[in-house]
């Protein structure tokens, strides 16, 4: 088994303009919180808030491209949003293996996404299956 409980994996992400615009182009979520700076400021945010589900895209990339195996499939994924993310924010994704179930080739992780100031913007869990 490639994974052991306690193994940690880190990956940096930046919310680029092309990611933000690409998300809107693909999913048509033009809610003013995400697209209208003045609206977002009226609601108490520092700027337009990036769509929380952009983070799920980063998680998909992390699982599909950054783990030591490509033979993986996502079984489940949970996310809790803790703080807003803004355009060009640099994010650190940190995941730790919390469970390994060799009998069924399953690995569970907990993760946190932090800004450079270490403020947590999201946390959650995901479970992957190994296609061995």
């Amino acid at each position: 088994m490639v994974f052991s409980v306690g193994d940690t994996y880190n990956q940096n992400f930046t919310v680029l303009d092309e990611t933000y615009k690409g998300f809107i182009h693909l999913f048509k979520d033009n809610n003013p919180l995400h697209t209208d700076e003045q609206f977002a400021k009226m609601k108490g945010f520092a700027d337009k808030v990036m769509h929380g589900n952009i983070l799920n895209g980063f998680i998909s990339y992390f699982i599909g491209e950054c783990l030591p195996l490509k033979d993986v499939i996502i079984h489940s994924q949970q996310i809790q949003f803790k703080n807003p993310v803004y355009l060009e924010d640099e994010l650190l994704f940190q995941a730790i293996v919390t469970g390994v179930y060799e009998s069924v080739n399953v690995v569970e992780f907990q993760y946190e996404v932090k800004k450079k100031d270490l403020k947590v913007v999201a946390k959650g869990k995901f479970q992957i299956g190994l296609l061995l």
């Binding site: 079984h75 469970g99 179930y101 009998s103 069924v104 399953v106």
Partner: peptide
């Protein structure tokens, strides 16, 4: 077959 995996994980836990 998919829920079987989840059953096994849940029982092991």
């Amino acid at each position: 077959s998919l829920t079987h995996i989840q059953l096994v994980v849940a029982i092991e836990k």
